[in-house]
């Protein structure tokens, strides 16, 4: 059958909105197999979908059964979900297992989704951080260790097994319809916390643009590490205003005070370990990706913010 001759791709994180966008873009040309550690997601009759723990032995059966050509690894338990230990097991050890199996089964393309959080938010960050900058998130907070470790691991495999052609993408804040990360939740809310006197410069990429970037990096096959961010910037507080959120300032100094407040009030929307990202700018330089892959975002910031503003109007 012609259908079976299509190249096969394993996409992880299938329950997430981003993975579904990526799958929609690839399904005509590739046979997609979707997996997620969190839940089984029905996508369509022609896309097998599994809920699976990468650390279990049955995961290997998928590789035996489908003979994948490539892997797009988007599945990550975010820092606001689960305990630190479970996150470490899923994100770091799970990724290691995935890369080991990819090597064992001669996979030729691997895309790993990382995050700009790995650079860490501190007062001394220069702007336009490029891919060679040290990853300082781990020194600042234990809760982001798994993000940095996942990166380190992918890096080791990138050099150790060149035939895997690993591409690591470090996007800025992914936002837009269906995205459920911390930033998207803040932009969606009517009242959003801010640290008084701090409004760091931020970058946002629309989920559709990010899906395009992932597909492009899979198809163009230029392995390496790339930041993904549009060449456009806005301060956090102005972004909130443009999304129609009223800002709720939290006392920002001494630094222990906002940490204490978010902990006591159980403010999950404003997680303690991400507070520095709402205080200091982490502006990444996405030009290397844009030039290498000929990428340009199609949805400007105004369109992103209009979506959140209109969403509130319909509530």
């Amino acid at each position: 059958m012609i259908k079976n001759k299509k190249p096969k791709i394993l996409v992880t994180g299938a329950a997430g909105a981003l993975a579904q966008q990526v799958i929609n873009r690839l399904r005509d040309d590739y046979q997609i197999v979707a997996v997620d550690f969190r839940k089984q997601t029905y996508l369509s009759d022609d896309i097998p979908s599994y809920q699976i723990n990468f650390n279990k032995r049955v995961f290997e059966d998928l590789f035996r059964k489908f003979e994948f050509d490539g892997v797009i690894h988007l599945g990550r338990i975010t820092s606001s979900e689960e305990t630190r230990m479970r996150r470490y097991n899923a994100n770091v050890l799970g990724t290691q297992k995935l890369l080991e199996l990819s090597h064992k089964y001669n996979i030729k393309r691997v895309i790993v989704l990382s995050t700009y959080h790995v650079y860490g938010a501190n007062a001394y960050n220069p702007a336009l951080i490029d891919e060679t900058a040290p990853l300082k998130a781990a020194e600042l907070t234990m809760d982001l260790i798994d993000s940095v470790e996942l990166e380190n691991l992918a890096n080791i495999y990138l050099w150790k097994y060149r035939d895997l052609n690993i591409t690591i993408l470090r996007p800025c804040n992914i936002v837009g319809p269906g995205v459920q990360n911390t930033m998207s939740s803040l932009l969606s809310s009517k009242h959003a916390p801010v640290l008084a006197g701090f409004s760091p410069v931020m970058q946002f990429i629309h989920i559709d643009d990010m899906a395009d970037a992932i597909v492009l990096s899979y198809e163009k096959n230029k392995s390496g590490i790339y930041n993904v961010a549009p060449e456009d910037w806005v301060s956090y507080q102005e972004a909130l205003s443009l999304c129609g959120c009223s800002r709720v300032p939290l006392p920002s100094i001494p630094p222990a005070l906002p940490k204490f407040i978010t902990k006591v009030m159980g403010l999950n929307i404003f997680p303690q370990f991400l507070l520095n990202y709402f205080k200091y700018s982490v502006v990444i330089d996405g030009r290397s990706f844009n030039q290498t892959f000929g990428f340009k975002v199609k949805r400007p910031l105004k369109e992103i913010f209009r979506f959140y503003r209109e969403m509130k109007r319909h509530d």
């Binding site: 336009l128 760091p200 410069v201 456009d232 806005v234 301060s235 700018s281 330089d285 105004k302």
Partner: peptide, 12 residues
């Protein structure tokens, strides 16, 4: 500057 009047170093 970008579309909202900012540059990467925070100039507005």
């Amino acid at each position: 500057v970008g579309t909202l009047g900012y540059d990467p170093w925070g100039f507005n």
